[in-house]
C-alpha cells in the first residue's frame, strides 16, 4: 500500500461543510463512484473513504456510526457492524478486508476530497 500521496491530487469539491451532519457522514457522488465523507465535529477532523463496505459489497459506510478506538477514527458499517479505521482503511474487527481512504481539506466552508490522478476508480465499483 502506498500511503504517501504527494503528487497529482485533484481536489473534488464535494459539498458545503454545513451539509454534513455533526459527528456523522454523507455519501458523495464522484463521477460514477461513491465516497463516504465524515465530519468528526468534536475533533474538527474530516475523513473520507470508499462508500462500499467490502464485507458484503454494500454501499453503506456513509450511513454508519463513526467513533474512535483508542483514539483512532473509525466507521462501523450499518449492516454487520464491521469497523474500519478511517486513517489506514484497515478492518478493526479482525477481518481481512480493508477500505480505501482519501485525503480531505476544507476551504471557505467547502469540503474537498483528494483524488490521486493515477487512481483506477473502476476498482471500487461493484
Amino acid at each position: 500500500m502506498n500511503n504517501t500521496i504527494t503528487q497529482n491530487i485533484t481536489w473534488f469539491k464535494a459539498c458545503r461543510t454545513q451539509d454534513v451532519p455533526a459527528n456523522g457522514g454523507v455519501c458523495v457522488k464522484y463521477k460514477d463512484d461513491q465516497i463516504a465523507l465524515f465530519h468528526f465535529t468534536r475533533r474538527d477532523e474530516w475523513y473520507a473513504s470508499q462508500n462500499m463496505c467490502p464485507h458484503r459489497m454494500q454501499m453503506a459506510l456513509s450511513r454508519g456510526m463513526i467513533g474512535t478506538q483508542q483514539g483512532e477514527p473509525k466507521v462501523a458499517c450499518p449492516f454487520h457492524k464491521k469497523t474500519f479505521s478511517l486513517v489506514t482503511g484497515e478492518c478493526l474487527s479482525g477481518d481481512e478486508c480493508s477500505i480505501k481512504t482519501y485525503p480531505v481539506k476544507v476551504e471557505h466552508d467547502y469540503v474537498y476530497v483528494g483524488i490521486t490522478a493515477d487512481e483506477n476508480m473502476e476498482d471500487m465499483m461493484v
Binding site: 468534536r42 456510526m65 463513526i66 467513533g67 474512535t68 477514527p73 473509525k74 462501523a76 469497523t83
Partner: peptide, 9 residues
C-alpha cells in the same frame, strides 16, 4: 473521547 458504535446507541 468520541464515542463508538457500542456506546452511541
Amino acid at each position: 473521547g468520541d464515542g463508538c458504535e457500542v456506546c452511541k446507541p
